[in-house]
């Protein structure tokens, strides 16, 4: 989820930073109005909290563990503006001191996780919790869903940012200069891991924390009330939600979206011949591989109105298989890295 340097073009990074700037400016002003001089200690300590929480290994159903960002917890307790600032500071520290996430990609990472994450979490939590009493079970569920949806929204944005790269930036021979995967691969590849693991971890953390606070420190829910809300907050929601949900639809509407391998081409004979030639005379499947149908279901379930026409296309499975391939190789790489780290710990070099 932390995008490193080099995957996004500098112009993409500049745009993402420019989009983030007004949020930071308005956020700083609003949080200052709400907390006055308390702002500095509150934001810095909460940034440190988010940093430390990102190191937690959360046990997931099925025996694996995952990491959370803590953005839903921060948004619920501090409100979206303060949460956005705190997570941004945590991301900056990770980028500068720990090499986690790029320096040029900082604006993009902040927009995805800190800004969109905070606003989506806040919107989902409020929508589901409604006026339920502070100690109610409904708030626990709302927090869990807020975490799940917020992290997946962040992953979707990251997937879109990746997927736009090959469309916009390639060299003279047509080779992509940055992330090489078009939307049709990048988005599912990002989403699979987050729908199945990271989003679940975030949801478990948020639900668990809210349940614990209800029992032990209900007064912490009052901080948010002090932060107030109003028109700026609604504008924040509107901008973020529009970007998260309208951007993919807009991309599809413009027709160019799903990259060089337009999905429909798989059913046209001449296009299939061209693809076959391009891939060393290996005939691409006329139908999506059958086993992929289940994956397509998984992909369809959480975002029902996300490009339905595209999903009903059988070729979606083909693209999903490519996405799953990327996800699997990513997982394998992480596994190798983990092994390498284990080896390093046993024979420390430095």
């Amino acid at each position: 989820m932390h995008i490193p340097d080099g995957y996004l073009s500098p112009s993409t990074c500049a745009v993402m930073t420019a989009v983030s700037l007004p949020f930071w400016a308005v956020g700083l002003r609003r949080v200052k109005a709400a907390f006055s001089a308390r702002l500095a200690p509150l934001i810095s300590v909460c940034a440190a909290f988010s940093f430390v929480v990102m190191m937690f290994n959360l046990p997931l159903p099925g025996g694996t563990t995952g990491h959370a960002v803590g953005v839903a917890v921060a948004a619920i307790v501090l409100g979206p503006w303060a949460s956005m600032l705190a997570i941004s500071v945590a991301l900056l520290i990770q980028a500068v001191f720990f090499g986690d996430g790029g320096i040029t990609a900082f604006g993009a990472n902040c927009f995805n996780m800190a800004i969109a994450g905070s606003f989506v979490a806040d919107a989902v939590y409020r929508a589901i919790a409604g006026a339920a009493p502070l100690g109610s079970r409904r708030r626990v569920v709302a927090a869990g869903l807020a975490g799940y949806v917020a992290l997946n929204a962040a992953a979707l944005l990251a997937g879109i940012e990746f997927g736009l790269q090959p469309m916009l930036f390639h060299d003279a021979s047509g080779a992509p200069l940055y992330c090489p995967y078009p939307l049709g691969i990048a988005v599912p590849a990002m989403m699979l891991g987050h729908l199945a693991f990271a989003g679940v971890a975030e949801g478990i953390l948020a639900a668990g924390v809210v349940a614990w606070l209800q029992q032990n420190e209900p007064s912490l829910f009052e901080i948010h009330a002090a932060a107030g809300r109003g028109r700026a907050q609604r504008i924040g929601w509107a901008v973020v939600l529009a970007l998260v949900f309208a951007a993919p639809l807009g991309l599809i509407a413009t027709g160019t979206a799903w990259g060089e391998w337009a999905v429909e081409d798989f059913s046209k004979p001449e296009a299939r011949a061209a693809v076959a030639a391009a891939s060393g005379n290996v005939e691409p499947p006329a139908e999506a591989p059958g086993g992929m149908a289940r994956l397509a279901e998984l992909w369809k379930a959480p975002l029902p109105d996300y490009a339905p026409a595209f999903l009903h296309n059988a070729a979606a499975g083909y693209i999903l298989s490519a996405g799953a391939g990327v996800a699997l190789t990513g997982a394998a790489a992480l596994g190798l890295q983990w092994l390498a780290r284990g080896a390093r710990r046993r024979n420390p070099v430095g």
Binding site: R38, N57, P59, I204, L205, V209, L213
Partner: peptide, 28 residues
């Protein structure tokens, strides 16, 4: 185990907010 991890995070959050109050005093 999930409860344990989440309550660990929640306790840390409580301590963080308390600490931020103490730091605020120290700064002022």
């Amino acid at each position: 185990r999930r409860q344990m991890a989440a309550s660990g995070a929640a306790m840390l959050l409580g301590k963080s907010i308390q600490l931020s109050g103490e730091v605020y005093d120290a700064m002022r």
